[in-house]
Simulated assay, not measured.
Amino acid sequence: MLAEYLINAFATLFVTIDPIGLAPMFLAVTPGLAGAERRTIAIRAVCISAALLLAFIFCGKPLLTVLGISVPAFQVSGGLLLFVIAFEMIFGHRAQRKSDTADKLAQPEPDHHGHGQDVSVFPLAIPLIAGPASISAVILLSSQAETGMELAGLITVALSILGLCFVIFLLADTIERLMGATVQLVLTRLLGVLLAALSVQFVADGAKAFFGG
């Protein structure tokens, strides 16, 4: 059961965070920056995302309890949200929306102190890495964790994917050049199909528990 849970968690978070798809977004919001500057931005973005996702892993289920939302109900709603994300991935809408966001912030306007906006916070950490889909996913997965081992495994999976994001940010130029637009397009659609299947399973499990309970 632990192995099945961890595989499910890895697949869900890998698809919703989409580390490979973030490579061109990272390049778009860090134009003309030196390697050291990009590395600093990458470290900050990943650390902020990690703090945010860990907060929802630990506080997500208690928050649902405070709000009076049952875990099965959130499984159904979270599964539906992930299905919408999968639909966008399959038909290319999500990549276009992320690209538009990155393009708008490629040349950030100075703030009232005369400094540029910190792209490591927005849009990299929020919402490109820790967005609605990934936050919903970690709450959903943490609510399904029945043992301390599963919760520890979820944390390890989340941190490993964020570490992969950091590596991909550092290799963004090479990855984009090697993969090309066509390979990225095909990979995004395949991952979208996988996420659609996972989201349907979440909805089915939630509905079964909701009506069964």
Rank of each mutant, 00 (worst) to 15 (best):
L2I: 13
L2M: 08
A3T: 15
L6K: 05
L6A: 05
F10L: 06
L13T: 03
F14Q: 00
I20N: 00
P24Y: 04
F26T: 10
A28I: 09
P31Y: 11
P31K: 08
G32M: 07
G32W: 09
A36S: 15
E37L: 08
R38Q: 05
R38L: 08
R38M: 07
I41A: 05
A42N: 05
A45S: 10
V46L: 03
S49F: 07
S49R: 06
A50W: 03
A50S: 03
L53E: 01
L53C: 01
L53N: 01
L54F: 13
L54E: 07
F58P: 05
F58H: 12
C59T: 15
C59Y: 15
L63I: 12
L63P: 01
L64C: 02
T65L: 15
L67F: 10
V76H: 03
L80V: 15
L80E: 04
L81T: 07
F87A: 11
E88R: 12
E88F: 14
G92M: 09
A95S: 12
A95W: 14
S99V: 13
S99P: 09
T101P: 04
A102G: 03
K104D: 13
K104Y: 14
L105A: 11
A106D: 11
A106S: 14
A106G: 15
P110D: 05
Q117T: 14
Q117P: 04
D118C: 07
V119S: 02
I126A: 07
L128V: 09
I129A: 01
S134P: 00
I135A: 00
S136N: 08
S136H: 04
I139L: 05
L140C: 04
M149A: 13
M149T: 15
E150M: 08
A152P: 03
L154M: 06
I155N: 02
T156L: 15
T156F: 13
V157F: 00
A158V: 14
A158P: 02
L159D: 02
L159S: 04
S160N: 06
L164F: 10
C165D: 01
F166P: 03
F166D: 03
A172Y: 04
I175P: 01
M179L: 13
T182K: 14
V183N: 03
L185K: 15
V186K: 06
T188H: 07
G192E: 05
L194M: 06
A196R: 00
A197W: 10
S199W: 02
S199Y: 02
V203T: 09
V203N: 00
A204P: 06
D205N: 15
A209C: 09
A209Y: 11
A209D: 11
F210I: 14
G212N: 14
G213Q: 13
